[in-house]
Design a protein around this nucleic acid. Structure first.
Length: 575
DNA sequence: GCCGTTTTCGGCCCGACTGTTTTCAGTCG
């Protein structure tokens, strides 16, 4: 039996929270499970490892007390939790699905279950169509109608959007609202501002002397298909992409407090408000108050200062220790896009790219880069026309030719070499030895058991010609889970052998993720942020990799491709 | 269920909007 992943423990606790909530359990008890699920999900170290270490205690983790520590041990040892099994036996799985319908929370779902014996989305649909629901206490015709609409919505499930897609839509709407004469500030807040890899909905904040006019403007925007709610200060709309957007209107003097509030995360805000309470203050979206008196709120800096903290970058606001760092004056000086000097992962027409070596080099130079590596696929990737030893050597000769023709940018001869299913590299050592830069990657056999994945990654790290592991977990955001591997083992070996780790900037990959990248940094491993561009336009994805690095708390010094080429070369194991 | 230089008991972030209500509960973020 393999050791259990933190994500699985987190999922069990999250389900416990949902089921307890449906059962009408104490809300703070429910919150305790949610908090624990979040903390465990955020942990870079595996809980299984802590359980197995006699010198460690799970209760070191904030939000884990005696009871939850015992439950985690049970989960680690048996891969299940008796209390969860009991709850599942009492509450049909369909009830949890019903919670996804907007407007239905645990109380209403529990009532539907109790009064109408509704156990599934199908039951719910039938009951709503037959008009049984509007007869219930607390339910009316409108609720019944919105349930029917919600059912359709859930069926055509609009998942969370990729950050890059959400950002395009947010920018279009922000620009449209900013053009209104009454508008002072307008900004996107929420998970978009925190640069999470996916975004559930958009939060836009505006100051204006004429809220009604701005809401009218939003309602008429080409991307908006429907107004879902509208009050004096808040409007919720649905976009044609399926994303929903909240517009909040606040007075100018509350702008900073509102930005802080609506940027979140929820967990970060709860911690900040708790600090405020300790100081006899109250923080809400309108400002910081001592009794009736507003003492701050125009800027975010004021809000943080009121609780004795410096301004905290949005990417760090997840209550993962950033408040403690801020308190100690140890917040990282996060890496910026402008710090990036080189891009070390890209493809050309030699394999599955759409541009030539020369076009990629010139496009990179136009973006201010000083060096790039051309890293086409190795032969295992037949679909992309991967290169064998001969083809690769020919390709490298071509790179040498372009080097002489294009000035102002250095071009490294690289390769993205597959780590085969059996753990061998896809190209012979003597070929890899001729490269300037070798990225080793997993593309196939991603469902292999943990032991085999670990073996493949370790073999690659031990191969003397490998410089970096590319998109190390091979996950695709929201589509394909990460490979089952042992992060501590990989990072320790990489640190020992001088192998770097990639943050792949493709918005669908963003791999390493923030948690793993922070763990790699803790091992002292240099991180390289690369676009994996397959076209000249693909070079613009660098921003998303930088966002992910910032969420991991990385500074420019932690990111190897912020160095000059000569300084970067000195960091390579090949010297 | 967690947590604690005021506490081991009694707190736990806070407000807007909707629908169904005559003053509020539930949901959401």
């Amino acid at each position: 039996m393999g050791s259990i992943q933190n994500a699985e423990v987190a999922r069990i606790f999250e389900e416990m929270a949902e089921l307890l909530e449906l059962q009408g359990a104490n809300a703070f008890r429910v919150r305790a499970y949610r908090t624990a699920a979040q903390r465990i999900g955020d942990l870079s170290e595996s809980v299984a490892q802590i359980v197995n270490d006699p010198d460690r205690s799970l209760q070191e983790i904030p939000g884990i007390g005696k009871d939850l520590a015992e439950k985690i041990e049970t989960i680690v040892n048996t891969h299940t939790l008796p209390q969860l099994e009991e709850l599942r036996a009492e509450l049909p799985a369909g009830l949890v699905q019903m919670l996804r319908i907007p407007g239905l929370g645990p109380k209403k779902v529990a009532l539907l279950h109790k009064e109408l014996k509704i156990n599934s989305l199908e039951d719910l649909k039938q009951a709503a169509e037959q008009g049984q629901i509007s007869g219930l206490k607390g339910f009316g015709k409108k609720t019944e109608q919105s349930i029917l609409e919600g059912l359709e919505q859930v069926e055509s499930a609009g998942d969370r959007a990729y950050l890059a897609d959400a950002q395009v839509q947010a920018e279009a709407i922000v620009a449209a609202l900013a053009a209104h004469e009454s508008v002072g500030h307008v900004t996107a807040a929420g998970s978009l501002r925190r640069r999470r890899e996916t975004v559930g909905d958009l939060d836009i904040l505006a100051t204006t002397s004429d809220p009604a006019a701005v809401m009218d403007l939003l309602a008429s925007h080409r991307l908006v298909t429907r107004v879902l709610q509208r009050g004096d200060t808040k409007q919720r709309v649905r976009l044609d992409s399926g994303l929903e957007l909240d517009l909040r209107v606040v007075p100018e003097e509350s702008y900073g407090a509102a930005m802080q509030y609506f940027t979140g995360s929820k967990e970060h805000n709860i911690a900040i408000r708790r600090r405020a309470l300790e100081r006899g203050l109250k923080i809400n979206e309108y400002g910081v108050f001592r009794g009736e008196e507003r003492i701050a709120g125009r800027t975010e800096e004021e809000v943080y200062a009121s609780v004795g903290l410096p301004w905290i970058p949005p990417e760090l606001r997840e209550n993962r220790g950033e408040i403690e760092l801020a308190e100690q004056g140890r917040l990282p000086k996060l890496v910026k896009l402008a710090d990036i000097r080189g891009d070390l992962h890209m493809h050309t027409t030699a394999t599955d790219g759409t541009a030539s070596i020369r076009e990629m080099a010139e496009a990179a130079r136009a973006r201010g880069l000083k060096y790039i590596a051309i890293t086409d696929h190795s032969k295992r990737v037949t679909m992309a026309g991967g290169l064998d030893a001969d083809a690769l050597r020919t390709h490298w000769k071509e790179i040498e030719k372009v080097r002489k023709e294009v000035s102002g940018i250095e071009i490294l001869k690289g390769v993205e070499c597959d780590i085969l299913e059996n753990g061998e590299m896809d190209l012979p050592d003597e070929v890899l030895a001729e490269a300037d830069w070798v990225i080793a990657v997993l593309h196939y056999g991603l469902k292999q058991p943990k032991e085999q994945i670990d073996k493949r990654l370790l073999n690659a790290v031990r191969c003397p010609h490998v410089d970096i592991i590319g998109h190390p977990t091979a996950r695709v955001v929201g589509r394909r889970p990460p490979v089952n591997f042992t992060p501590e083992q990989l990072f320790k070996a990489a640190a020992d052998h001088g192998v770097m780790m990639e943050i792949n900037a493709d918005p669908h990959r963003l791999d390493l993720d923030d948690i793993h990248a922070a763990a790699a940094k803790a091992h002292g491993i240099p991180i390289v942020i690369s676009t994996d561009a397959h076209s000249t336009g693909g070079l613009d994805l660098m921003q998303y990799g930088v966002y992910q690095a910032r969420r991991a708390g990385l500074e420019a010094k932690d990111v190897a491709n912020t160095r000059t080429l000569s300084a970067f070369r000195k960091m390579l194991r090949r010297g």
